[in-house]
Design a protein around this nucleic acid. Structure first.
Length: 485
RNA sequence: GGCCCCGUCGUCUAGCGGCCUAGGACUCUGGCUUCUCAAGCCAGCUACGAGGGUUCGAAUCCCUUCGGGGCUACCA
C-alpha cells in the first residue's frame, strides 16, 4: 500500500511570514488536503540568533488567519513531535554522533577566518569556492594539537565521490556532481545543529512524504539526500521533492518592500481578505487547467495537484490581487462584510463601536460593497455618516459656492423640507421633479452640488441612499450649512 | 567565475506535434449604462527571446545562443 501523504511547511521565522512563504504554505496545505494526507507545521529555529519567539507566534497567527489549519505542529502536537527544532536538539546530537562513528562525518577544526581566507584564495585562483577537505583525514596527533590550541570543532559531512540524481516532481530529473557539493557542516562549534542536519533528520523522523518548498533550496537537496544515506534510510522512504518557482517583485528580482509589501501582516492591515490572498497566491505558479480564476479554498483542495504547478517564476501583481479582493468583498454576505469592516471603522476612529453605530454601518454596507477593493476603504466611504464636525472637503468647496449651486441648494432645501417620508425614493422623486424637470438641469450638475453639500465630497455612495441613511435633519442641516459657505 | 533552475500578451496563465490566423484573467484604451465613484456589458491593443535542426506539419521535440534567477555560510 502506498505510504501516507505527509506534507510539511517548515519556515524559519526570522521575520514576519512573507508572500513567498505563504505561497509555499498554501501549496503544502492544498496538497495535503487534496490527497487526504497530513499537513505538518514545523518551526525551523536552529538559528537562534535570528529566530525570535515573537516571530514564531506571528507565524502561527498568520497561518491561522489564512485558514491554513495544520494537523501536526505547534499547539496541536502530534505523534512525531516536538515540532520546534529547538526542542529536538538531543535527536540531532545522537545522529551526528552516529555519523561520526560511522565515518560519514568528521570533526573539522578550521576556523571561520581560515575558511574565509581559503575561499578567497580559491576565488582569486578562479576555482569554485568550497570546503577543501583539509580536516577530512586528520591524524590523532593533529587532532590533539588543534585541541591543545583550544579550537572548537564543527561536525562536517563527508561527500563521497560521484553524483546525486533525484526526480523533482515539478522539474524532472536533476543531477549534481559531488565535486560541486563540498563537505558541509552539520553541527556548529558550540554543538548546535544546522539546517542541513535538522531538516533531513526531521523529514525522515516525521515521515514526511512530500517536500514542496521554494526553488532556492533546490541546490541543497543533494546534501539532504547525503544525510538520508548516512541515516540508512531506504530509497523508497525518501520524500518526494518538488521545488516551487519563486514569487518575484513587480520589476526585476526578488519581492521586496520596494515593489509591493512582502509581509502578510501588511496585507491584513491593508484590508485584504484571507481568501483573496490565497486565491491570488495560488494562481502564482499553478492553475486549475481551465479558465477558472475565482477559486474558493474548498475548490482549491479539490483541484490542486503538483503536476499542474509551473516551473517558471511569477511576478507579484498588486493590481490583480486588488481585483480579486474586490470580487471576494462583493461576494460577502452583509453580516460577513460587517464583521470584516467593523475593525477598520474602529481603528480609523470613525466609530467607537456602539450598537447604534454598528447598526448604521450595517445598513450602509450594501451601498458601498461594490465600490471598494480593500476593507480599509470603508472608513473613508462611510465617515460622512458619523462626522461630528462635518465639513466639506477643501477640494470640493469651490463647487458648491458658485451661484448656480446656491440655487440648486436653495431649491433642494425648499423641496425636501416638507417631505414627511424620508426614503431614497421620496428624496429622489422630489429632487428630480424640482431640479431636473422644473429647472432643467443636468442630473450630474444638480445632484453633484447636493452630493458635495451632504457628503462633503464629489465622490460618494449613491446620493439618495446616502441621504436616507444620514437622516432628514442632518441632511437638511448640511444643505443649509453649505448655503452659508 | 562554477553548478543548478527558468524563458507564451505589460503581468498571471491555457497550450503537452495538427483543434493556434495562440484562448482566459488583471492592467490599459474606447464605448454603452449612469446622480458622482464603482459595478456590469461590449469592443480594442499587445506574446510563443533568437538561431539552427527533427517532421508533411512545431509555442509544443532536440541543439546552440541570449536573457533572467538561485546556490556557492559554523543562514535557511
Amino acid at each position: 500500500m502506498a505510504r501516507e501523504i505527509r506534507v510539511r511547511f517548515a519556515p524559519s521565522p526570522t521575520g514576519d511570514l512573507h508572500v513567498g512563504n505563504i505561497r509555499t504554505a498554501l501549496f503544502d496545505w492544498a496538497y495535503a488536503r487534496h490527497t487526504g494526507g497530513k499537513f505538518i507545521f514545523r518551526i525551523e529555529d536552529t538559528d537562534t540568533t535570528r529566530v525570535t519567539d515573537e516571530y514564531i507566534a506571528a507565524a502561527l497567527d498568520t497561518l491561522r488567519w489564512l485558514g491554513l489549519d495544520w494537523d501536526e505542529g505547534p499547539e496541536v502536537g502530534g505523534p512525531y513531535g516536538p515540532y520546534l527544532q529547538s526542542q529536538r536538539l538531543d535527536i540531532y546530537a545522537d545522529w551526528a554522533q552516529k555519523f561520526l562513528d560511522q565515518g560519514d562525518a568528521y570533526h573539522c577544526y578550521c576556523t571561520s577566518v581560515e575558511l574565509e581566507e581559503r575561499r578567497e584564495a580559491q576565488r582569486a585562483a578562479n576555482e569554485a569556492p568550497g570546503y577543501d577537505g583539509q580536516c577530512r583525514d586528520l591524524s590523532p596527533e593533529q587532532v590533539a594539537a588543534f585541541r591543545a590550541e583550544g579550537r572548537d570543532a564543527v561536525v562536517r559531512m563527508r561527500m563521497p565521490d560521484g553524483s546525486t540524481t533525484f526526480v523533482d516532481a515539478i522539474r524532472g530529473e536533476v543531477s549534481f556532481e559531488h565535486k560541486f557539493v563540498p563537505d558541509f557542516v552539520l553541527v556548529r562549534g558550540d554543538g548546535s545543529p544546522l539546517y542541513t542536519l535538522a531538516v533531513a533528520v526531521d523529514d525522515i523522523m516525521m515521515k514526511v512524504s512530500h517536500v514542496l518548498r521554494g526553488e532556492d533550496l533546490l541546490s541543497s537537496t543533494p546534501r539532504q539526500i547525503r544525510v538520508y544515506q548516512a541515516m540508512g534510510v531506504a530509497l523508497e522512504d525518501y520524500p518526494i521533492f518538488a521545488h516551487l518557482p519563486f514569487v518575484m517583485g513587480q520589476d526585476n528580482a526578488k519581492l521586496s518592500k520596494r515593489n509591493g509589501e512582502v509581509s502578510i501582516a501588511w496585507y491584513r492591515d491593508a484590508g485584504f481578505l484571507p481568501e483573496a490572498i490565497c486565491n491570488y497566491l495560488v494562481l502564482l505558479g499553478w492553475s486549475p487547467g481551465d479558465d477558472r480564476e475565482n477559486i474558493t479554498m474548498k475548490e482549491l483542495t479539490e483541484l490542486f495537484t503538483v503536476e499542474r504547478v509551473n516551473s517558471s517564476p511569477a511576478r507579484f501583481d498588486m493590481k490583480k490581487l486588488e481585483a480579486i479582493n474586490g470580487d471576494k468583498i462583493r461576494a460577502l454576505t452583509i453580516d460577513e462584510f460587517l464583521t470584516w469592516a467593523l475593525p477598520f471603522m474602529i481603528r480609523a476612529q470613525v466609530i467607537t463601536g456602539t450598537d447604534e453605530q454598528i447598526a448604521l454601518v450595517k445598513s450602509a454596507l450594501p451601498i458601498i460593497q461594490e465600490r471598494i477593493t480593500r476593507l480599509s476603504e470603508v472608513p473613508a466611504m462611510l465617515k460622512f455618516l458619523f462626522a461630528t464636525n462635518f465639513a466639506v472637503e477643501a477640494d470640493s468647496l469651490s463647487k458648491v459656492t458658485d451661484a448656480a449651486s446656491k440655487d440648486v441648494l436653495k431649491r433642494s432645501l425648499a423641496e425636501l423640507t416638507p417631505l414627511t417620508q424620508w426614503t431614497h425614493d421620496t428624496i429622489e422623486a422630489a429632487l428630480r421633479a424640482s431640479l431636473i424637470e422644473e429647472l432643467g438641469l443636468k442630473p450630474r450638475i444638480a445632484f453633484g452640488s447636493v452630493r458635495i453639500a451632504v457628503t462633503g465630497s464629489t465622490v460618494s455612495p449613491p446620493l439618495f441612499e446616502s441621504m436616507e441613511l444620514l437622516g432628514k435633519s442632518a441632511s437638511l442641516e448640511r444643505i443649509s450649512a453649505a448655503l452659508a459657505l
